[in-house]
Computed example of a mutant assay.
Amino acid sequence: MELDAKRWPDAQNDDPSAFYKVPFSRVVYIDQSDFRMKDSKDYYGLAPGKSVLLRYGFPVKCTNVVFADDNETIHEIHAEYDPEKKTKPKGVLHWVAESSPGKEPIKIEVRLFEKLFNYEAFMTF
């Protein structure tokens, strides 16, 4: 399935050039920091029994967590999605779909830059 995603936040809904297609599949990947085993009132990520919205997608609710052999490392999260978008969760997650069968995923290089200095530097001229 393909979903419409806005190219920029304030894009007009009646402008077709303001959207691009995003593949949505049975398997999606989220950032590890967007999931916790213990939920709290001020946490808007995914947790067992909790719902979040996949950006440009659907609300999903965590139904099961599968652990690796060490019983500590999370191997996968099972969730059900709401195709009618009836639920309105507060949290919104970025995600990426698994590549389609027979298609190679796009390979990219990502460079993460941290702060150059450990202290605030002042420059005077």
Rank of each mutant, 00 (worst) to 15 (best):
residue 62 C to I: 03
residue 106 I to G: 02
residue 121 A to D: 10
residue 112 L to A: 15
residue 42 D to F: 10
residue 44 Y to E: 13
residue 22 V to K: 08
residue 76 E to A: 07
residue 27 V to E: 10
residue 68 A to Y: 13
residue 27 V to S: 08
residue 70 D to G: 05
residue 18 A to F: 01
residue 16 P to M: 04
residue 99 S to V: 12
residue 14 D to Y: 07
residue 61 K to L: 04
residue 111 R to Q: 15
residue 3 L to F: 01
residue 58 F to E: 02
residue 87 T to I: 13
residue 101 P to C: 05
residue 12 Q to I: 05
residue 46 L to S: 11
residue 45 G to F: 01
residue 62 C to R: 05
residue 106 I to K: 09
residue 125 F to D: 15
residue 90 K to G: 09
residue 38 K to N: 14
residue 65 V to D: 00
residue 100 S to F: 13
residue 34 D to T: 06
residue 56 Y to H: 08
residue 92 V to K: 06
residue 23 P to A: 10
residue 100 S to W: 12
residue 91 G to T: 01
residue 27 V to L: 08
residue 43 Y to F: 15
residue 60 V to Q: 04
residue 118 N to A: 11
residue 6 K to W: 09
residue 30 I to P: 01
residue 58 F to W: 02
residue 103 K to P: 03
residue 124 T to N: 12
residue 117 F to C: 09
residue 11 A to Y: 02
residue 49 G to L: 04
residue 81 Y to E: 03
residue 67 F to N: 04
residue 13 N to G: 11
residue 19 F to S: 00
residue 3 L to Q: 08
residue 56 Y to G: 08
residue 70 D to V: 06
residue 88 K to M: 13
residue 94 H to K: 09
residue 114 E to A: 11
residue 108 I to W: 09
residue 32 Q to V: 14
residue 10 D to R: 15
residue 81 Y to A: 00
